[in-house]
């Protein structure tokens, strides 16, 4: 393409956007509304997912060390634990640490057990790489030497993981379905606006324009409509997310729950929405004019 022709196409698409008046407004609004829906759902579902993950990650396997274990037995056990593939981290917590934690949460009635009266065990707190393997790890640890007991929340934790898996799958399905709906709706709006211009396209063909000469301005126009249409939900969602994030995080402070940080999550969401707008706008319009080009 000659540079001159390239600039002509750019100019032409801006002119067309202006002259198409309400058709442009209609297309831009359709894109904006659809992407607002998609964007909000993604923001909500991804954060629900994040909170679910936070809950799951809080689940760890507590390995109670047999009182008979000597120091080297304990070291051997730690090594065995660390050698398990699914294990990410092993933290030692002495019976004194455990006691002071219990006292911290239940009060001083336990104060009577001091020093050698302490009825608690030394504990290894084992974090697994993935929450789903927690019960497997617990089973394996149970058979190791000098393990007095293993605890990971058992049935409750398993149930939690099941619920979370469902929430996650349903969320993923909804997001995919929403993106499909958005693609369909935007492409359709553009198809309708272009349908009203099919005689124009036919005339261009009859005057000797090549398909690409006709296609470029439509493609650029579609991309611009998609971009402008995406800017609106992007600003709304960014504004709400940024202010909502601060408020909610204040409530969550001190817990192990956290929302997805605006950077990178919001940045990625914005990029996704803009990309959907631009790609569907341009591809949608160039596909829509295809059948009118056969003159």
């Amino acid at each position: 393409m000659k540079t001159r022709t390239f600039w002509r196409h750019i100019k032409e698409s801006f002119k067309s956007i202006k002259r198409n008046g309400w058709m442009t407004v209609a297309a831009v609004s359709a894109v904006a509304v659809t992407l607002l829906l998609v964007g909000s759902f993604i923001a909500i579902l991804m954060n629900v997912n994040k909170l679910a993950t936070d809950v799951e990650e809080d689940v760890s396997v507590r390995v109670y060390i047999d009182l008979a274990a000597e120091e080297e037995d304990q070291e051997a056990l730690q090594q065995n634990l660390e050698e398990l593939d699914e294990v990410e981290q092993v933290v030692f917590s002495s019976r004194d640490d455990e006691l002071s934690q219990v006292i911290g949460s239940y009060g001083d009635e336990f104060g009577l057990f001091d020093g050698d009266d302490n009825p608690l065990y030394d504990v290894f707190i084992v974090n697994t790489a993935a929450p789903e393997v927690t019960s497997d790890v617990a089973d394996q640890v149970e058979d190791m030497n000098y393990v007095a007991d293993v605890n990971y929340g058992g049935a409750t934790a398993d149930r939690l993981f099941e619920v979370m898996a469902t929430v996650r799958n349903v969320g993923a399905v909804i997001i995919v379905a929403l993106i499909f709906t958005a693609v369909f709706l935007i492409a359709n709006t553009i198809r309708i606006t272009i349908f009203s211009r099919r005689t124009e396209i036919e005339i261009m063909k009859l005057v000797g324009a090549t398909n690409w000469f006709i296609r470029w301005p439509f493609l650029i126009e579609g991309a611009l409509i998609g971009f402008i249409g995406a800017l609106i939900p992007v600003s709304i969602i960014s504004y709400i997310y940024l202010s909502g994030f601060d408020t909610i995080m204040t409530y969550l402070s001190g817990t192990y729950f956290a929302l997805l940080a605006p950077n990178p999550f919001l940045v990625q969401l914005v990029a996704l929405l803009l990309t959907i707008g631009v790609v569907i706008g341009s591809v949608g319009s160039s596909l829509s004019i295809r059948k009118f080009l056969k003159v």
Binding site: K2, R4, T5, R8, M204, V207, G208, A209, T210, F213
Partner: peptide, 9 residues
């Protein structure tokens, strides 16, 4: 338009 199509300046 008919001339732009041909690529005239």
């Amino acid at each position: 338009y008919a001339m732009q199509v041909v690529g005239k300046n």
